[in-house]
Structures are given as C-alpha cells and as structure tokens.
Design a protein around this nucleic acid. Sequence first.
RNA 1: GAAUUCGUAGCUCAGCUGGUAGAGCAAUACACUUUUAAUGUAUGGGUCAUGGGUUCGAAUCCCAUCGAAUUCACCA
Length: 512
Amino acid sequence: MSTHLSEQEIQRREKLKELARLGVEAYPAPTFEVNTTSKQIAEEFDAEKKNLQDISIAGRLMSQRIMGKASFGVMQDSLGKVQFYVSRDEICPGEDKSLYNDVFKKLLDIGDYIGIKGYVFKTQTGETTIHVREIKLLSKALKPLPIVKEKDGEIYDAFTDPEQRYRQRYVDLIVNPQVRETFVMRSKLISTMRNFMTERGYLEVETPVLQPMYGGAAARPFKTHHNTLDMPLYLRIANELYLKRLIVGGFDGVFEFAKDFRNEGMSRFHNPEFTMMELYVAFKDCYWMMDLFEEMVEAVVIALHGKTEITVGENQINFARPWKRYTMFEAIKEYTGTDISALDEDGLRAAAKQLRVAIDDTMGKGKLVDEIFGTHVEPKLIQPTFITDYPVEMSPLAKKHRSEAGLVERFEVICNAKEICNAFSELNDPIDQRERFEEQLVLGKRGDTEAMQLDEDFLRALEYGMPPTAGIGIGIDRLTMIITNQPSIQEVIFFPQMRSEVAQLRSEEAKS
RNA sequence: GAAUUCGUAGCUCAGCUGGUAGAGCAAUACACUUUUAAUGUAUGGGUCAUGGGUUCGAAUCCCAUCGAAUUCACCA
C-alpha cells in the first residue's frame, strides 16, 4: 500500500498529537457505560413525561453543525441516528473552555466514536435531541468517511461505487443504512428457517468442508492439499452425501447451513463460495417436502415483511400457499404449446430446433428437455412455482419415479425466473446408485468436468440400508436476494469475492 | 472465458471535436448560544487507474496492463 497520505489524513494525525498535548486519550481503554440507544430515544422519549433525563450513549459522530458557543451534531449507533446539542458553558463550566473550543470544535471529526451523557429534550423545531452534559472521545478515526446527506427523504452524494462498497464493506455499512438492513434481514431469514426446522425436531449438524472426494452436485471443485496426510482434499461443492450418511446412522432429520465452494464462473448470481441449506428427513418423499418448503418460505416472508406479497424488481411476488405445481412436461406445454412428453431423442432435438433453442450434438435426452425448459419456461416463472418430474439423466442422486419411466422424483421451485431449491425422494437403492455413479464416470471420461465421482464409502453406507428419505437443498443467497429485493448476490454477501487489489498496489509500490 | 461500458480531489460528479483541471459536500481559518443537505467569508487539496505511443502539446486520440459493472456462456 502506498504510504501517501491525503491532506485530510495528515490533518487527522496532527489532531492526534494535539489531543495528546491536551491530555485527551484518543483510544481510551475503560468501558464507557451505555444505558440507551438511538432507537429507544426515538421511540420512547415523551416531552410530557420528561423521561430519559439521565442517559448515556455511544456512537459514531456523523455530522457537526457548529454555531459559535453552541453546536448540534448527529451520532449514529448500531440502531440508528440521534441528534445532540452541546452548549459551551455547560460542558466547560469553569474558565477553561478548551474542551469545547479545541477538542469538540476542532479536534473531533466526522467518523470519530464518542460517548455522551445528558438528557433528552425536543428542540424548537420538534426534533428529539440529547442535551449534552458530558462528551468523551472514544476512538479517533484517521480516514474521512464519504459524506452522505439527506433532506426530505432525498439522498445526496450517496456512496454508490460498487467496487468500493464491496471491498470496504465496513464503510458501506456505516454510511448506507439500507445495506445494514439487508444483512439484518438475511440473518433473520436464516434464524427463521433454523427455528422452523428445530421446532419440528430436526437436528442441526456439521459435516466436513474438506473432503477427500467431492460429491452431491455437478460442479467443479477447489482442490487443496493436506501436508501431514500428504493427500489432496477438495472444498465441498455440497454436503448431501454426508447428510445422507447421517440418515443411515439413524437420525430422523438432519440439516446444515453449509458454505459450499464451486470453482466456476462469477456473475451477479454466482459467488465462488455460497450458502446452501440442506435438509434430509427419513420416511418422507419429495411430495411431502414440497409442502414443507412451501410452508417454510411463506413463514420466512411473513417473518420478514409481515405479509406474503412483496415487491421484487418490477414484479409483485406473492408467497401465499398454495403455489402452482407443474410437471416439467406440463410446464413446457403450457409455455410453448408443444407437448414433448412422448418424444424420443430425435423428436426432442427436432422440437428444440423448432422452438429455436440453442443445442448441440452432445446433448442427451435429459439435457435437451432442460434446455427447452431453461429457454422458454424458466424466464417466465415469476411467482413461486413447483416443477416436478425431471429426466433421470440429470439427477443421479434421485429415486426413479414411482410411475413414470425415464423420470425421477424430484422438484425445483422457480421464483423470479431463478431456481431457489432442488429436492428429491432420495435414491436409497445401493445397486441403482452404483449404476448411476458409473454413468457419471463415463461422462467424466468423455470430458464432463462436472461429472460426479464414485463414492465407495457412500455406497457402503447405502448398503447398510437408508430409509426412504426426502432431501432438499435451498440456495440461501438466491432466496435472500428475492426476499430482500436485491439485484445481485454481491448485495447479500458481506464480502463477495473480488479480484485482488494487491497486485495493483504492489505495482504502484515498486515504482515509488 | 467473450462483448460492451467505465476508472478525474476523502465522497458525488462536470470537463464539447486534443491547448495543460473545475463544482457541491467534506477539510482548514474566522464569525455565529436551538440548528438540521445550518449559514456567511476566505484558504488549501489532484503522478486525471497504471505503463507506453501519436502530437509542438494528451484527462481527452491509439495500444497494452490492472480493477469494476452489465450482458452472454457455465452453474446454485
């Protein structure tokens, strides 16, 4: 990093020296006891009752309006902002006015942490304000914050550059309150789901992130190496096969909020690490899981918004049960007018061409169906919609359909034109599962970099017997994007992956 | 990985077809005891992402590199 300091950074370092000269500690150690918050003051202050007459609050100084011997300022704590009023002769009752004239007026900066003691009152203009009796510097900021101003709900000079916002999320969180709100909602979403499952008796578990063999999804992994064991390890792309081992072990229901890692392209819908919640429940099938998922998402939306209908981008989306349910063939017929359910591979290829779907010769039956669906149906599914009965070729871990040849017991929910979950009646026939893995091996040899590996230990577990099981994987980031109305995954992940600025900074350093 | 757009003061942005950088906020100084995008006056602050090229002259044109956004491809 360049050692060049801006004018403002130099000034703030000078102020540190001046504070020291005045005997003011810039980074004091003792606890500053707090007994209220900006939120409590805003909600509970009552000028009639004269409550909140002895408060102590800490936060970041966000603006200062100095008018001679009196000043107003705004401080921000974790729950919001509150205005305060300082009068020179009250904080400096004696002859020495340096606390006000020097420390408060000159040596404090926007961004500094301060502690305030005083009482709450309303100004002539009616704003709830803290009348300051004591003010104390708690931590000096050496870098200037972006200054965002607001009047009548209009925001001026918002801090908007996405690169800076993501790289310096701490600054984004300080100056953009709606960003904080989005992440609080993400946290509530997760806790609502966790409670929902825990209340039903399912056990939250943890399974390996470092896996000797990756599996449970079609994706390219990150590879690493363990020095002591001298063996390759992979960062998990899914935890499915481990959770099923636990069902074999006798748990009725297990779930995990898992960070998964996929070494693939990045976009506003893809981050290399992302969060997936997987749940497996014994003695159930995928139709049972449809009801559970529908109920859970409806509960989450109500918990976060107090209603089932929300605005997402241009659309109004209503999560009230029941949601539409289509088989994949029904959905394709509905949206293209073409019934492809009885077609063989050649017929599908012809139908795809007629529907102007981009295909190539390597695509098998399942892939062709998926391409038609992805091109003509998925983009149109805005309201949450179940799609069931997927082709067997695309689903090596799902049980064959109880009545439809060539299909599996599987569903996805599409919402806002994106998949938000994927669920099966889990394949528990160990012989069938071995054959499916073997088909994947063939695909892998043909060069499919996302084909699954054959996991002998998983097959051994199935051979001990896995009960009929329903399983689901829910993309937490995608679900959060929809429920918080955010257009990109980077807006719902605190620290999204970015190209390193290190190379850039180093080359600058080398020159100087 | 490909295409397009973009990178100017701490922040948000201007800078026309090349003539040597500007505004608002922030900062500094002074004034002001209930203001609120506080106000008034004055001042300082920029290797115009980086490196090269064309040119008498480049923030502006060309090439390369770094970084970002959007779209596409792969996927969740």
